[in-house]
Design a binder for these strands. Sequence first.
RNA 1: GUGGCUGUAGCUCAACUGGUUAGAGCACCGGCCUGUGGCGCCGGGGGUUGGGGGUUCAAGUCCCCUCAGCCACCCCA
Length: 457
Amino acid sequence: MAGGALPGFRDFYPDEFAHRAHITGAWREVARRFAFVEYDGPPLEPLDLYTKKSGEEIVGQLYNFEDKGGRQVALRPEMTPTFARMVSARANALRKPVRWFSIPQLFRYERAQRGRLREHFQLNVDIVGEPSEVADAELLAVAIGIMAELGLGPADVRARVSDRRLLNGILAALGVAGDALGVAYSVLDKAGREPEAVARERLAKAGLHDAGVSAVIDLCAPAAIDRARQTLGSEPAVRESLERFDRYMTHLASLGLSAWVDEDLSIVRGLDYYTGIVFELFDAKGELRAICGGGRYDALLNDLGGVDLPALGFGMGDVVLGELLRERGLLPNAVGSGADLFVIGGPGASADGMAGALELVAALRRAGLSVDHAMSEDRYLAQAPRNQFESAKKSGALAAIYLDEGGLVTAKGLAGKLADAPVFSQARDAVVAADTTAIEGLQAFVGALRAAAATQP
RNA sequence: GUGGCUGUAGCUCAACUGGUUAGAGCACCGGCCUGUGGCGCCGGGGGUUGGGGGUUCAAGUCCCCUCAGCCACCCCA
């Protein structure tokens, strides 16, 4: 279809926006529960904020252009450089540890695919100034807490954890060095996605002998860390990292997260700025891309902002997570307007005409209620009542309200059958005059309907 | 950036080997059954069949280009 959104960009119709709000709402709620505070930065940044550290080749992945002032700019592809700048600028003034989160919309100029668009929303959660592995456990607890908040369990989502320092120690103990080191990282990163034979060939080509090749291949297995505990525990290069990693696992257990977590040395995380414990969240079936990834990057703030503070964080996108929730039927159903009340005509409608309806609408809204109505004199005064009820019902409103006989306004619930529909009447003049008792009565009536609707499937 | 598959109303799909003004259900709008029973009935709007070019008496149907989507690479978020 012509005239749609740009490739890789999404239109959020109300139904889709409700899904997005469901996800971002869970992000905010859990971040708040973990005592993180929200920040944001500009969506458009100087291009060199991203090229300075990553080199010119990253420009191919950026949504960049020259602005009218001749500046080279880019839509932000990630939040970390902005975050690093903001923290660095006030590093001395900020109370440590810093615990911040943000929900930026990020952009990349890449070919769109499933789970991978040119734009997405990504929760960023970061901790700065805390070297203890308790902070690492806390960080993963946030990510898992979000999964639980959205209705996902350990059978749906797995957290895979590793430690770059531990991996480095193990590789050193195995005698992997030089060119082979980079290849070993690549092989681990691609574990399960490339044939073992190809991996072996690449390792051999990098100068490893058969025993070394097999040793690296074995690291891809889930039990690799356990094996290292037994065979390499006494190696000085490994022991310290192993002890730290074990403390981390103990903290996760104390936080009640053991059921979610798998040790897995093949979690390397693409970019090499990670320096310690790293993790990723995947759907348990392994069909989708990673839901979330993060870890410790103790050197990055120094590199980007010139401030030497330990830091760790993760990013969690809305696209893959949304797909998983959709598959599991965990996204909220579509709703109508969600209005509390829909004003329609009634026996008393003709007496006061449209003015009577609008005065009632205005009074109800001043009382804080959400109010919809037909916005047409024809429909209000002339349309058959049953059709007006039909319209009110289709709008998604909880109740219809109309000018009744005897100077009353009557509200009638729209869910279920007529015989069961709750009814509530008040003197019209009292409602329009904002009489406290009348308004509170209506609010209580609406509140009861809302509570009843919330228990429906 | 490379390769493969797909592209008909808002959605799900029809249209025999190319053959009259491209149909249906759902959704939407209006009306009716003089107060809604997740009903019913009548009517309506909406597609230059993704776009462009070509072959043909005739193209949604065949060919080419292009755009978009999906998938696999690449890369990562």
